[in-house]
């Protein structure tokens, strides 16, 4: 299993300073990154993927600094789904998913499996650019599934932001299955109901600093969330447990019991 460790890295991006301190997302668990816009969620994920060089400290993958690791070696152990998937050539959905294995041998069955897990089997031969935003995000997740090896690291930056609830629920199940099989999953989201379904642990970042890290059942609550996110939170009873929901002030009348 791969171990990902933020060892007090400091990354300055203009006026913004990312300095989260010591954080180590656990292997075999899903850690959900929450926090206000511009707080450093994407910086954390890009840094974890080796895209940013810390001025001090380090981000270690199995003990080695991730940003100096050769790209091919890193790709074998870690997959990233960026916030906005971009494909600058007229590729089919299958072509894009196969890029997850671009430097390593891949059987067509493996690509087909990755497509099926993201519910894209029917869309496999469509041009990527003919798809909706949510479908394109599912293609990016499927590419990460194709790339990912058991026990590796999966980094997801708002990977379901535009995905419809039924497909998002299916992706949540697949990602939890990866964690159960030993993956280290770090996923940023601003959707508390997605966070409730996905998270074993919660890492909250604001202003570039860690404001909380702990078990989801303690942090995704009506008591803890308002001070972390600055929004009122309601709790609902879901099919498998409690769900945290941002309370924007719903105006629906209470349903008769």
């Amino acid at each position: 299993m791969s171990a990902l460790r933020f060892q007090s890295p400091i990354i300055a991006r203009g006026a913004f300073m990312f300095a989260p301190g010591e954080v180590a997302p656990s292997a075999g668990r899903v850690t959900v990154l929450i926090g206000p816009n511009g707080g450093g969620k994407t910086t954390a994920l890009r840094a974890a993927a080796g895209m940013l060089a810390p001025e001090q400290g380090a981000i270690l993958l199995d003990g080695a600094p991730v940003h100096t690791m050769p790209a091919a070696q890193r790709a074998a152990r870690m997959a990233l789904v960026a916030q906005r998937p971009e494909v600058g050539a007229p590729f089919s959905v299958r072509d894009v998913v196969a890029l997850g294995r671009v430097l390593r041998p891949a059987s067509p069955e493996r690509i087909a499996h990755a497509l099926a897990r993201s519910g894209l089997t029917q869309l496999a031969d469509r041009p990527f650019h003919a798809l909706s935003g949510g479908q394109q995000q599912r293609v990016a997740v499927a590419r990460a599934f194709a790339q990912h090896e058991p026990g590796g690291v999966l980094l997801l930056d708002e990977a379901f932001a535009a995905v419809d609830p039924p497909e998002a629920a299916a992706l949540v199940r697949e990602i939890r299955a990866e964690a159960a099989a030993g993956a280290t999953v770090l996923a940023a989201t601003h959707d508390l109901s997605v966070a409730s379904a996905l998270a074993d642990d919660v890492w909250c970042i604001a202003g570039g600093r860690s404001t909380a890290f702990g078990a989801a059942r303690e942090l995704l609550t009506r008591a803890a969330l308002p001070s972390l996110l600055g929004v009122a939170v309601a709790e609902a009873h879901g099919s498998r447990g409690t769900i945290a929901v941002a309370d924007y002030g719903g105006i629906l009348p209470e349903a008769p019991r």
């Binding site: 080796g50 895209m51 890193r74 790709a75 990233l80 971009e86 430097l103 590419r143």
Partner: peptide
């Protein structure tokens, strides 16, 4: 970012 993450 995505290109680098797949190993390019």
């Amino acid at each position: 970012d995505e290109a680098r993450s797949i190993g390019i």
